[in-house]
Amino acid sequence: MSRRSANLSLWLSLGTLLAITLACFLGSALLPDDAGEQALSERLRPPFWSPDALAGSPLGTDAFGRDMLARTLEGGRVSLEVGFGAATGAVLIGTLLGVVAGFWGGWLDRIVMALADVWLAFPFLVIALATVAVVGSDLPVLIALLTLGGWVLPTRVTRTIAQRVRSEDYVVAAAGAGASDAYLMRRHVLPQALPVVLVVWSFTVGALVVIEGALSFLGLGVKPPTPSWGNIMSDGTVYLDTAWWIAAWPATMIVLTVICANGLGNGLRRRWATPDTSRVGEKAAAR
């Protein structure tokens, strides 16, 4: 891909992602139609292009007569809260662990890396299902769970960077002037890790929005009546042949969000092309 089109896809992804986020967070607050408000007389009304469409509900209504536009935006707010929150948590934890493990090495590094290997050996969805079955699926629980789902990639990537930077001559020089390890990590390792961490964060948002959708679709994620893209889709599957739009809107939003998150990650990776960032791309692709 040429540099120009790579830049275009970066800005397009970023713009769309921002638009989706703003719409979900502001839209659910601004829209007059409350997402939970039922109107049983107006059940399963089709979207605006159909002659049967209901004025004021351009995306149609669901089986309880609730406005699909309001529900898609409100559900998006919940899904994105989980996705952004968990991705941010995963990247924070992963960066901390990776930088410290890579910089200090030794037994700490071996423990962290062994944990990462063991963690990857378990199928995450099974762990998630078991956890939700035991402790329930409140929003904080989901965010914590998905944070655990995403910590390995940022840990591994930042560890590699810390290992490399630690032995650079200019870091040895700073140590030779009396710098503490904390100073070296903060002033030399973190700035080098930051671009890569942002790339990993974008990819992780995409991956976690999908996992949240899958969990909620299985009825183990966000519980109705709180909408999320996953549980709206789950509700809609019953009506696929009569009212396909119920499942179609959240599904479209998930696909769009994931494409944009990956596009953003890829775009940033190309923009800050370094050996570290290209390795992230390979790892993310391998997943």
């Binding site: 650079e168 001559d169 200019y170 040895v172 020089a173 030779g176 002037a177 009396g178 710098a179 503490s180 030399h188």
Partner: peptide, 19 residues
């Protein structure tokens, strides 16, 4: 660390020795 100002090091490759 408190003693380090006594002796300082100059590296062979100045490009690698500067961030």
């Amino acid at each position: 660390r408190a003693e380090r100002s006594h002796t300082q090091f100059v590296f062979q490759d100045p490009s690698a020795a500067l961030s």
